[in-house]
């Protein structure tokens, strides 16, 4: 059970890190630049929020599967196979949790008054330094809150993970998959224990996240 919990937390942290790495530049772009198609871009990026996770998982399987465009490319370039590996856990969880980070981060970056950015530039800061030394620090609470939400969502990921990573005990099984597995086998005690563990970990994560959001 400890191994399952550690694996789930590791997957969730890796997925959220991937979300931050990809989402932060996009959130900055969406929050501070005005360009045609901005709303449409955000809507597309946030699709995993409203799509059934099975649909997201199926799309990932089509893209990263053995015959998918990206799956083939990864296999040829690095000899990497995604489906039914821990990498699939991370990818599925990162995709589903991505909109939560993106939306929270975009809102936080957008909320930084434009005057601060103009002043930073007039004071001699380059666009890069104005972004990293003024805008991002001022948005930091929202960025942390978004990252915590992404970890929480990634931890609870089930549908897309089942499609892409499967439920391989000792390899791709996470806490949420473990609950499903135990319940399916009629092992209610184990299902309950795993559920409680998941609730405890999620609560420990979300508490600081909501505190950060309130403090904004």
């Amino acid at each position: 059970m400890t191994r399952l919990a550690l694996f789930s937390v590791a997957v969730a942290l890796a997925a959220a890190s991937l979300d931050v790495a990809i989402g932060l530049p996009l959130a900055y772009l969406l929050g501070r630049r005005r360009f045609p198609g901005r709303r449409a871009l955000e809507a597309i990026l946030c699709l995993p929020l409203v799509l059934p996770p099975t649909v997201t998982g199926f799309a990932l399987l089509v893209l990263f599967g053995h015959r998918g465009v990206l799956g083939l490319a990864l296999d040829r370039a690095f000899g990497l196979t995604v489906p039914f590996t821990p990498a699939a856990n991370v990818l599925a969880a990162a995709t589903v949790a991505f909109p939560l980070f993106l939306r929270t981060a975009r809102a936080a970056i957008e909320a930084v008054p434009a005057e601060h950015v103009l002043d930073a530039r007039a004071l001699g800061l380059s666009p890069w330094r104005a972004a990293t030394r003024v805008v991002l620090p001022l948005a930091s609470r929202g960025l942390w809150a978004g990252a915590a939400l992404a970890v929480g969502r990634a931890l609870g990921e089930f549908g897309a993970t089942l499609m892409l990573a499967g439920d391989v005990p000792g390899r791709t099984q996470t806490l949420s998959l473990g609950v499903f597995d135990a319940a399916l086998r009629g092992n209610d005690g184990r299902a309950a224990a795993l559920s409680l563990l998941l609730v405890a970990i999620s609560f420990a994560l979300l508490l600081p996240a909501s505190a950060l959001e309130r403090a904004r």
């Binding site: 005057e115 601060h116 103009l118 002043d119 930073a120 530039r121 007039a122 004071l123 001699g124 800061l125 380059s126 003024v134 620090p137 001022l138 930091s140």
Partner: peptide, 19 residues
């Protein structure tokens, strides 16, 4: 660009960065 114009800038109210 602004960062290469040699001037000191004092915005209204001081415009200090709150962080």
């Amino acid at each position: 660009p602004p960062e290469r114009r040699p001037l000191g800038w004092v915005p209204q109210g001081g415009g200090l960065f709150p962080h």
